[in-house]
Amino acid sequence: MPLINISLRAGKTDAYRQAISDSLYRAMRDTLGVPESDHFMTISEHTAANFRTGNAYGIVRSADVVYIQVTVFSTRTAEQKKALYRRAAELLGDNPGIAPEDVFIVVHDAAKENWSVGHGLAQFA
């Protein structure tokens, strides 16, 4: 039950944004065992003035950097997260063609009782 927020510089096509969503969904299915139809993603586009990046940590990033925040149950292992990072970079490289140095991912762990996916219930607590 991941929740994904994707941020990128404005101006990309609908097909480009769809490819990002599709590639991330596939990466989660491949590495985290996310069930079919578990699509909970938003994409936010930002003007160049409101979208900054740097070359910290020895990685030279381009204007095409994509920031991806993934919130998951706190039961995910470090190995699952590492597999997600690798698979997402691979798939995003294939489609829509994002360079691996431009794939910036942060995973946030959330306890199961912190989720309500509808009807005001804590479905996973």
Score class of each variant (00 low, 15 high):
residue 66 V to Y: 07
residue 66 V to N: 12
residue 66 V to K: 10
residue 66 V to T: 15
residue 66 V to A: 12
residue 66 V to D: 07
residue 67 Y to A: 12
residue 67 Y to V: 09
residue 67 Y to L: 15
residue 67 Y to K: 11
residue 68 I to W: 00
residue 68 I to E: 00
residue 68 I to N: 00
residue 68 I to V: 08
residue 68 I to G: 01
residue 68 I to F: 00
residue 69 Q to K: 12
residue 69 Q to Y: 07
residue 69 Q to D: 12
residue 69 Q to L: 09
residue 69 Q to P: 04
residue 69 Q to W: 06
residue 69 Q to S: 14
residue 69 Q to F: 05
residue 70 V to P: 04
residue 70 V to K: 00
residue 70 V to H: 00
residue 70 V to E: 00
residue 71 T to F: 09
residue 71 T to L: 06
residue 71 T to A: 14
residue 71 T to P: 05
residue 71 T to V: 08
residue 72 V to P: 03
residue 72 V to C: 14
residue 72 V to F: 07
residue 72 V to R: 11
residue 72 V to S: 10
residue 72 V to I: 13
residue 73 F to N: 03
residue 73 F to M: 06
residue 73 F to Q: 03
residue 73 F to R: 05
residue 73 F to E: 01
residue 74 S to H: 04
residue 74 S to A: 14
residue 74 S to F: 02
residue 74 S to L: 02
residue 74 S to N: 12
residue 74 S to K: 02
residue 74 S to E: 12
residue 74 S to D: 15
residue 75 T to W: 02
residue 75 T to H: 09
residue 75 T to Y: 06
residue 76 R to W: 12
residue 76 R to G: 12
residue 76 R to C: 12
residue 76 R to S: 13
residue 76 R to M: 09
residue 76 R to K: 15
residue 76 R to I: 15
residue 76 R to E: 08
residue 76 R to V: 15
residue 76 R to Y: 11
residue 77 T to F: 14
residue 77 T to V: 06
residue 77 T to D: 08
residue 78 A to V: 14
residue 78 A to D: 15
residue 78 A to G: 06
residue 78 A to P: 13
residue 79 E to C: 10
residue 79 E to D: 15
residue 79 E to Y: 05
residue 79 E to L: 13
residue 80 Q to G: 04
residue 80 Q to S: 11
residue 80 Q to T: 10
residue 80 Q to E: 15
residue 80 Q to K: 03
residue 81 K to G: 04
residue 81 K to M: 13
residue 81 K to A: 13
residue 81 K to S: 09
residue 81 K to C: 09
residue 81 K to H: 11
residue 81 K to E: 14
residue 82 K to E: 13
residue 82 K to L: 10
residue 82 K to H: 11
residue 83 A to W: 00
residue 83 A to H: 02
residue 83 A to P: 05
residue 83 A to K: 02
residue 83 A to F: 02
residue 83 A to R: 02
residue 83 A to D: 12
residue 84 L to D: 01
residue 84 L to W: 00
residue 85 Y to N: 06
residue 85 Y to K: 04
residue 85 Y to G: 07
residue 85 Y to C: 05
residue 85 Y to E: 04
residue 85 Y to L: 13
residue 86 R to P: 07
residue 86 R to N: 11
residue 86 R to E: 14
residue 87 R to Q: 08
residue 87 R to I: 06
residue 87 R to Y: 02
residue 87 R to F: 04
residue 87 R to G: 04
residue 87 R to D: 13
residue 88 A to I: 05
residue 88 A to Q: 05
residue 88 A to P: 10
residue 88 A to N: 07
residue 88 A to Y: 01
residue 89 A to V: 10
residue 89 A to H: 04
residue 89 A to W: 02
residue 89 A to F: 03
residue 89 A to Q: 06
residue 89 A to P: 05
residue 90 E to N: 06
residue 90 E to A: 12
residue 90 E to M: 10
residue 90 E to F: 02
residue 90 E to H: 10
residue 91 L to W: 03
residue 91 L to C: 10
residue 91 L to D: 13
residue 91 L to V: 08
residue 91 L to Y: 06
residue 91 L to H: 08
residue 91 L to I: 10
residue 92 L to A: 08
residue 92 L to P: 15
residue 92 L to C: 07
residue 92 L to R: 09
residue 93 G to V: 03
residue 93 G to Q: 03
residue 94 D to W: 01
residue 94 D to E: 14
residue 94 D to I: 08
residue 94 D to V: 09
residue 94 D to F: 01
residue 95 N to R: 10
residue 95 N to H: 11
residue 95 N to M: 13
residue 95 N to G: 07
residue 95 N to W: 06
residue 95 N to P: 01
residue 95 N to Q: 11
